[in-house]
Simulated scan of single mutants.
Amino acid sequence: MHRVIGETPLAESQVSTDEAVACYRDIVRARRFDERALALQRRGWMSGYPPFKGQEASQVGAARALAEEDWLVPTYRSNAMQIAYGVPMSDVLLFRRGYPEYASEHDLNVFPQSVPIATQIPHAAGLGMAANYEGDDAAVCCYFGDGATSEGDFHEGLNFAGVFDAPVVFFCENNGWAISLPRERQTASATIAQKADAYGFEGVRVDGNDPLAVREAVAGALESARGGDPVLVESLTYRQGAHTTSDDPSRYRDDRADLPAWRTADPLDRYESYLREAGVLDDDLVDEIAAAADEELDEAVETAESTPLPEQGDVFEPVYEELPPRLANQQAWLAEFTAKDDVRELEY
């Protein structure tokens, strides 16, 4: 079965006014973060960055469905989801500058970002199987894009989850493009959600520009997963910007062609209008939320810029209990190279 969940009036939804506004707050935080990170990358503050503008509602809705004991298994474009789940903005920024991913050493149940496509999916299935073995009530939410469904790891991970009843929600954010390849060029399936049929569990499609609908869909999927029935959620959204800062989408796409307006509309504008019509959002609250997000970002950038550079040994020493000869030789070479007089000290 492939259910489709869409927007409903706030008064008829299962979401409180406070939760609806909290979703808006997180979407604004995510949008401001994306804009600031993109600007920082353009001035050389970090080497590269994957924008997610247009996908904030999808990610925030999914993150706000997670319970504290649940696990998030993210990928490189899931920054909005991580921030909404509680990962400090400074951690995400530091990761993009080459630091350890979780510099603040928080205790959230969040895996490191997966940059190779789909490699995190079998890990998520294994994490869910381990939760079963341990008698843990936690469920796992594994985030990936539509391009990941064309990788072997996707099929292996879903197959294991289906066979072993792993408590995993596979959250596929379908933004229409796998870098420059449109969805219809990478799969002949009418939907991504229907791929779940091959592995013996349910597939759900949801309006990814409606954070409350995504929250409802993922919350229901997590409940199902805790009961031993994995779920594949396909969140229909749209990537408004480039794949990464090294990409030029004007070379391969006729922007917003062949997609309905509900999917390509700006989710922040759409959700703000929705809350205003419901009478729970006004100009003063909008300004207050935007100012708080900017202040949080200022502090995050300051934290990132004031964090000392890692020591040379940090790239070698945490990897193995006993450093193998090959890495020991590389470490010795690096120490000798950086000790030379004509090597300029690294700085940002």
Rank of each mutant, 00 (worst) to 15 (best):
G220D: 02
T8E: 13
V169W: 15
D269Q: 15
L281P: 04
V92N: 11
L346E: 11
D34G: 12
N329Q: 13
G6M: 06
P310W: 03
D248S: 11
V163N: 02
V4W: 12
N209Y: 03
I179F: 09
G227V: 06
G98I: 01
H2D: 08
Y199V: 00
P100L: 13
D255Y: 08
G44R: 09
E322Y: 10
E317P: 02
A80Q: 03
R77H: 03
A161L: 07
D107V: 08
H243C: 09
Y24G: 07
P318L: 01
H106Q: 04
H243E: 06
G200Y: 14
A261I: 09
S47C: 08
A118M: 12
L108C: 02
F170P: 01
Y199F: 15
A67F: 04
N329E: 15
V115D: 07
H155S: 13
A125H: 12
R253K: 02
G61W: 01
D247A: 09
V315F: 07
G61A: 08
A57V: 08
E56P: 01
A328G: 04
Y102N: 09
Y99C: 09
G48F: 14
Y320E: 05
A290T: 15
R326N: 11
L38R: 13
D207T: 03
A65D: 03
T149W: 10
E288H: 07
R31A: 10
A196V: 03
D298Y: 08
V280G: 02
V301M: 05
Q113N: 06
I27E: 13
G241W: 14
H106A: 11
G157V: 12
E173H: 04
D165P: 02
E299G: 02
Q59D: 14
E336T: 10
E101P: 00
N159F: 05
